[in-house]
Simulated scan of single mutants.
Amino acid sequence: MIAEDLLGRHEVATAADMERLGARLGAGLTAGDLIVLTGPLGAGKTTLTRGIAEGLGVRGPVQSPTFVIARTHPSLVGGAPLVHADAYRLASAMELDDLDVDVDGSVTIVEWGRGKVDGLRDSWIDVEIERPVGDVADETDAEDLDLDAPRVVTIARVTA
């Protein structure tokens, strides 16, 4: 279970700070925990996941699962593995469930999972990442999306 001081709103100045926040979050997670990450393209969902992976002590590298839908990272310290899934192209929790992800035996992170994890768990951790959008000239330009601009991260517990 995550520490109470991690719930709420966090201002995150850099990608390194995002990873540090993720490491703090990951240090308190155990098998069966489900995290839903929401935010626009380039918000830092995968960067936060890298930090969570570090906090869990799992094997990397952690990369966006966009093209493979889900990746499993085994523990290097005898803890729960990390399942990192991308639900962007999935229509429902049923399709996510069809992936045969071990939600009970893993820490499961689902990017773009809001509205698609209902039924997988009675409760989960919802993480919303906001990034500035007014300064980004073209959302398809990866260089613009990687600007080290401040983010706002809101962490909450959700009960179905």
Rank of each mutant, 00 (worst) to 15 (best):
G119V: 08
L145R: 08
T154H: 15
D104T: 15
V152F: 03
A87G: 07
R131F: 04
G42M: 06
G22I: 01
A70I: 09
M18E: 13
V110W: 05
I69F: 11
T154P: 04
S92A: 05
A142E: 12
A91L: 07
G57R: 13
R151N: 12
V133G: 10
M1N: 05
T159R: 15
I69R: 06
T154N: 10
H10P: 13
I109N: 03
D97K: 09
A91M: 13
D126V: 08
R89H: 13
A27W: 08
P74H: 03
D102H: 05
A87R: 12
G51D: 13
V77D: 09
D144Q: 09
D148P: 10
D144P: 05
R9A: 03
Q63K: 13
I69V: 15
R151A: 02
A137W: 10
G32V: 07
E54D: 12
S106Y: 14
V101N: 12
A80T: 15
D122P: 04
R151P: 11
D122Q: 12
L41V: 04
L34E: 01
M1Q: 15
S92Y: 08
H73A: 00
T14E: 09
K116D: 12
L120I: 14
E19G: 01
S106M: 11
D86L: 01
D100C: 02
A93H: 11
E139G: 00
A156C: 06
A137C: 07
R114Y: 04
M94V: 11
G22P: 09
A80E: 09
I2A: 00
G44L: 06
L25V: 07
S123N: 07
G113Y: 03
V101T: 11
L145D: 09
A53F: 10
E54L: 04
A31K: 04
A87V: 13
A142V: 10
E128I: 02
A156F: 09
V68P: 14
E143H: 04
G119R: 11
H10G: 02
H73D: 04
A93W: 10
L90H: 02
A16P: 14
R121S: 00
A91Y: 12
L25Q: 01
P132W: 10
D104Y: 12
K116H: 05
G105E: 01
A27Q: 11
D104Q: 07
P81Q: 00
E54S: 04
I2M: 06
R59K: 15
T108W: 05
D144Y: 05
E95T: 05
A87D: 09
L90N: 08
Q63I: 08
S92L: 12
A137F: 15
E19Y: 13
E54I: 02
L82N: 05
G42A: 02
R20P: 06
A43F: 08
V68Y: 13
R157M: 14
P65T: 00
P61V: 02
S75M: 13
D100A: 01
L147H: 11
R151F: 06
V77P: 06
V68T: 10
V152E: 11
I109H: 02
I35R: 02
A93N: 04
L82W: 15
S75Y: 08
P40N: 10
A149V: 07
T72L: 08
R114M: 13
G60Q: 15
R9I: 03
T49N: 03
Y88M: 06
